[in-house]
Design a protein around this nucleic acid. Structure first.
Lengths: 188, 188
DNA sequence: ACATATCCGTTCCGAATTGGAACCAATATC
DNA sequence: GATATTGGTTCCAATTCGGAACGGATATGT
């Protein structure tokens, strides 16, 4: 009971270990607990470009076999990839994006857009993206799911959602100061 | 000369070390070389929620002071944050998002959207986002910079951009097989 | 039949990164 | 003069990582 509050507010310990961030009530922290490790997003980049087999991932990425094996297993465990047998004799497996994995496309595309604009070396983007829908060279923009306008930080107001509401209410009823509830928002 | 090709194709060494991914001609790899380390995106999440001071970051995140100091310095070095003196005596500093830092908003919002949908625990999202433009609770969608339609992986065709074109041309004139040029695309 | 190749990993060890805690310096406040 | 606050740095043990060798199941060449 008290424990879970402390977990959210991180008063239980001076510092939180990285392998515990999935316990935070924060969607970014939870996302990163699955895709936030070294190599993982690069593996997914390759998956979106069509790579499916262990060897190809290893060659394309230059990751060690050990690390690759570990990362792929974790992605399978979290249903971002599925391990599919594509050959009986000898038994051979490949890794394919699931719906959950495909849903990461916006994350990768926004990283591409940022890198193209802010990390280029003056030689233009390494890859160009042609949108078959409109035929133009394009980049990704984050826009509103309802009105379709591009999202700007100052026009988006974060507020306590259902998952945090009750925690906040309990804290308030126990006389916790507003500052700690604010801090809750920061952690969500 | 040959070195730079090997760098791109990663034939020079069996494996590439993580601290060298910024040398890849890949915008995702380059982006991750700045924001891909543990804690960094969580620090930026806090920055977008208004945190500016060393102590507040430390309290909110539960990161060690050492690590925080290192990450902030790196973000300042890459102009994602600026260190601004907000008090003369005693000299006190705070960290603010630059334009380059603000441009990371889509990355964070797409991580939030993915986490809300795929990593929730059945209690609804921790934070709700109200878009002042339309007044609704919304989430971020990646859409086309030209036609505005939501981006779907199968409708986006990646092709060699200027930064890779010349490398590919040189490889071809030297008789490298098409497979290695394909691999170039994968690395870009 | 036997050697070699391919694919998909695992095991092991030294090197690099991280977490945890203590320490430090400049100034404000009691 | 003692204690608190802000913004760090230093140090060491624990964890994670990179590199290279090894393994097992099967195909392929000779």
């Amino acid at each position: 009971m008290l424990d879970s509050q402390f977990q959210v507010l991180q008063l239980a310990r001076d510092c939180m270990r990285w392998d515990q961030i999935d316990q935070q009530r924060c969607s970014i922290a939870r996302s990163l607990s699955v895709v936030g490790e070294r190599w993982t997003l690069l593996i997914l980049r390759d998956a979106f470009l069509g790579t499916r087999r262990f060897d190809k991932f290893q060659q394309n990425l230059g990751i060690t076999r050990h690390r690759l094996s570990e990362r792929l297993s974790k992605l399978v465990k979290h249903s971002v990839l599925v391990k599919v047998q594509y050959n009986n004799r000898p038994p051979r497996y490949e890794y394919r994006l699931t719906r959950k994995g495909l849903a990461l496309y916006p994350v990768l595309m926004s990283l591409v857009a940022w890198g193209d604009e802010w990390m280029n070396d003056g030689m233009g983007p390494p890859l160009e993206l042609v949108h078959l829908n409109c035929g133009e060279k394009i980049h990704a923009v984050a826009s509103c799911s309802t009105c379709g306008e591009p999202l700007r930080p100052e026009e988006v107001r974060p507020q306590l959602g259902p998952a945090l509401m009750e925690v906040a209410a309990r804290l308030e009823s126990e006389g916790e100061c507003i500052e700690e509830i604010q801090s809750l928002i920061r952690h969500s």
